[in-house]
Nucleic acid binder design. Structure first.
Length: 507
RNA sequence: GGGCGCGUAGCUCAAUGGCAGAGCAGUGGCCUUUUAAGCCAUUGGCUGAAGGUUCGAGUCCUUCCGCGCUCACCA
C-alpha cells in the first residue's frame, strides 16, 4: 500500500469509483483481440490496395498513450507490443454516454480493447473507427508523461523519462514509455538466440551446472557467500562455470556450453554489474587458435542475425566484426604502448624495475602477472577499438590455461577486445592434473588469501582431471557487454532489465 | 572507498542570497477528421533529509540519504 496517494492518483481513484457506480468493471477477467495494431493496419492497407469494398473489422487492445477530445468526437492512440494505432470515437457511433465515459473517466495509461472498422482519416492515418470499447485495466499512477511528435517521419519524444535512477528502479515505467528500451531487450534476446543457434549448429550440448557451489573457481573474483541451513554448509554463488563444464569433458561430453548468470562481489561501474550473464563453451580437441576462429565466426553470425550487417556504430566508433580480426601478441602490444618487453622481465623485480625506469606507477605488492594485467588495462585495452585478439598471457594469472610448448612462463590464452572493452577470454585448457595441482599451489603461495587472483584448491576438480580430460579449448564471454556493443549502449545497466542499485531507506 | 557534479510540481526543466516559475500531464469549459490538436480558465511545492550562517536560504556551510561521472578496484 502506498503511504499516501498523490493528487493525480486521488483523481484517478475517484474515476475508478465513478466507473464502478456506472456498472463498468475496471479490471475485467477476460480480454479479446483479433488484430495487433500492426496487423490491423496491414490488413487495411492490403484491402485498400486490392480495392476491396469489404470493410476490415478488427478488435484491438492496448494502452492509451494519447487522447484528443474534440466535443462529440475523440481521437486517441493505443500502444500494444508492436506499435501504435489511432482510435476514432464518435458520439453518433458509440453513443453519447459511452463517449462521455471515455473522455472523462479513462486516462492515458489505461488498457482498453476496441472493436470497429478500419479506415483512413483525412490526414491519411490508418485508424480504427470504434463501434464499442471496453476498459481492460485502469491505471492509477500516471505514467511519466512522454509525448510524441512526428517530424518528417521521425518520432520526436518530448518530456521523456530521463532520470536514470527512476528508469532503473521502476523499469516497468521506463519500458512503458520508452519504446527504444523495449527494443534493447528484444535485441538482447535475439543475441542469445543467435548464439544458441550457432553453437547448436556445431553440435554443442547446452547444459546447466550448479550456481550454488561449495568451492568457487574459474575466475579471479571475490564471491558472494551464502549458507545452507540443513546441510550446515557454506556455499558460494558461482563466479564462473568453468570448472563444472570441464568436468563434463571428463565425462565424454565433447562439446558443451552454458548461458547463465555469474555473481561477483566486486565494484559496480559502466561495464560491471554484480550479477551478469555469461556464455562459456568447451570444445574437446580444439586449441585456442581454433577457438579464436570460432569466436570471430560466432560474433559475425550474431551480427548478421541481429543487425543484418557486420558493421555498426558504438559510441561514435564504426566497428567492423567481419573476420578475420586483428591478432596481437600481448608481448608485442605491451611493447608498443609501454616500451617494455615482458619477455625481458622474467621476474617481478625485473618488471618493477622496467616500470620504474619509465615512470609507470605500480603496486609494490603485486606479482609479475598482476603487474602485466595492470599494464594491459591501463595502456593497451583502451587502444583496442576494432575487434582484436590479444594472445599469449603470463602463466601466473592464468592458472587454468595450458603453457605454450617451450615457453613455460606463457600460456595459450587470448582475450577479445572491442571498443576498448574486454569481451571474451579463452584458452587452450590445462588438462594435466599434476600441472594443475602445481598451479593451485603456486596461487596459494604467490597470492594471499584476500587476493581475488587466488584460486582455492578444488580437489574434486583435480580428481576429475586425473580420470583423463581430453585436450580442449574453452571460451567465456559477457553477454551483457556484447549487448552493449550491438545496441550502442554506453552503460551495462542499459542492457540489464533490473540492474543492481543501492536500496533506498524506507523502501 | 576517494574526487567532482546533481537532487525543485506526476514528467522535463527555470529561478544574482530577496514573493518558487514554465512547458507537458491534470481539472473545468468550447469544439464532429485531430495527431506535441487548438482556444479560455485553473489546481498543483515541507525545493531529498537534518542541522547551521543570515534580517532573509532552492541558492552559502556541516552531516546524512540517493543517483551520475570519474579514480581505485574489477577472468
Amino acid at each position: 500500500m502506498p503511504a499516501e496517494y498523490t493528487n493525480l492518483e486521488k483523481i484517478r481513484l475517484e474515476k475508478l469509483e465513478t466507473l464502478k457506480k456506472r456498472g463498468v468493471e475496471p479490471y475485467p477477467t477476460r480480454a479479446q483481440r483479433t488484430h495487433t495494431s500492426r496487423q490491423a493496419v496491414a490488413a487495411f492497407e492490403e484491402a485498400e490496395e486490392k480495392g476491396s469494398v469489404q470493410p476490415v473489422q478488427a478488435i484491438v487492445a492496448g494502452r492509451i498513450r494519447s487522447m484528443r477530445v474534440m466535443g462529440k468526437i475523440t481521437f486517441a492512440h493505443i500502444e500494444d507490443g508492436e506499435g501504435r494505432l489511432q482510435l476514432f470515437l464518435r458520439a453518433d457511433e458509440i453513443g453519447r454516454d459511452a463517449l462521455e465515459i471515455f473522455n472523462r473517466d479513462l486516462d492515458i495509461g489505461d488498457f482498453v480493447q476496441a472493436k470497429g472498422e478500419m479506415f483512413r482519416t483525412k490526414a491519411g492515418e490508418v485508424t480504427l473507427k470504434v463501434q464499442e470499447y471496453r476498459l481492460l485495466a485502469k491505471s492509477i499512477t500516471p505514467l511519466p508523461a512522454a509525448k510524441d511528435e512526428v517530424i518528417d517521419g521521425q518520432v520526436v519524444r518530448h518530456t521523456v523519462l530521463a532520470d536514470p535512477e527512476m528508469r532503473y528502479r521502476q523499469r516497468y515505467a521506463d519500458l512503458a514509455v520508452n519504446p527504444e528500451v523495449r527494443q534493447i531487450f528484444r535485441t538482447r534476446a535475439a543475441i542469445v538466440r543467435a548464439l544458441r543457434e550457432y553453437l547448436d549448429g556445431l553440435g554443442f550440448l547446452e547444459v546447466e551446472t550448479p550456481i550454488l557451489q561449495p568451492i568457487y573457481g574459474g575466475a579471479a573474483a571475490r564471491p558472494f557467500t551464502t549458507y545452507h541451513n540443513q546441510l550446515k554448509q557454506t556455499l558460494y554463488l558461482r563466479i564462473s562455470f568453468e570448472l563444472y563444464l570441464k568436468r563434463l569433458l571428463v565425462g565424454n561430453l565433447e562439446r558443451v556450453y552454458e548461458i547463465g548468470r555469474d555473481f561477483r562481489n566486486e565494484g559496480v561501474d559502466r561495464t560491471h554489474n554484480p550479477e551478469f550473464t555469461q556464455l562459456e563453451f568447451y570444445c574437446a580437441y580444439a586449441d585456442y587458435l581454433q577457438v579464436m576462429e570460432m569466436t570471430e565466426q560466432m560474433i559475425a553470425y550474431v551480427a548478421d542475425k541481429v543487425l543484418g550487417k557486420r558493421q555498426f556504430t558504438y559510441q561514435g566508433n564504426t566497428i567492423d566484426v567481419n573476420p578475420p580480426w586483428r591478432r596481437l601478441e600481448l608481448r608485442q602490444g605491451l611493447f608498443e604502448v609501454t616500451g617494455i618487453d615482458i619477455q625481458a622481465c622474467p621476474t617481478t623485480a625485473d618488471l618493477q624495475r622496467a616500470m620504474r625506469e619509465r615512470g609507470l606507477p605500480y603496486d609494490p605488492n603485486a606479482p609479475r602477472g598482476k603487474l602485466i594485467d595492470g599494464l594491459i588495462g591501463d595502456y593497451l585495452e583502451p587502444t583496442l577499438v576494432q575487434p582484436t585478439f590479444l594472445y599469449d598471457y603470463p602463466r601466473d594469472i592464468s592458472p587454468l590455461a595450458k603453457s605454450k610448448p617451450g615457453d613455460p612462463q606463457t600460456v595459450e590464452r587470448f582475450e577479445g577486445f572491442i571498443a576498448g572493452m574486454e569481451l571474451c577470454n579463452a584458452f587452450t585448457e590445462l588438462n594435466d592434473p599434476l600441472d594443475q595441482e602445481q598451479r593451485f599451489l603456486e596461487m596459494g603461495r604467490d597470492y594471499d588469501a584476500e587476493d581475488e587472483q587466488r584460486h582455492p584448491m578444488d580437489e574434486d576438480y583435480l580428481r576429475a582431471m586425473r580420470y583423463g580430460m581430453p585436450p580442449n579449448g574453452g571460451f567465456g564471454m559477457g553477454i551483457d557487454r556484447l549487448t552493449m556493443l550491438l545496441t550502442d549502449s554506453p552503460n551495462i545497466r542499459e542492457v540489464i532489465l533490473f540492474p543492481h542499485l543501492r536500496e533506498r531507506e524506507g523502501e
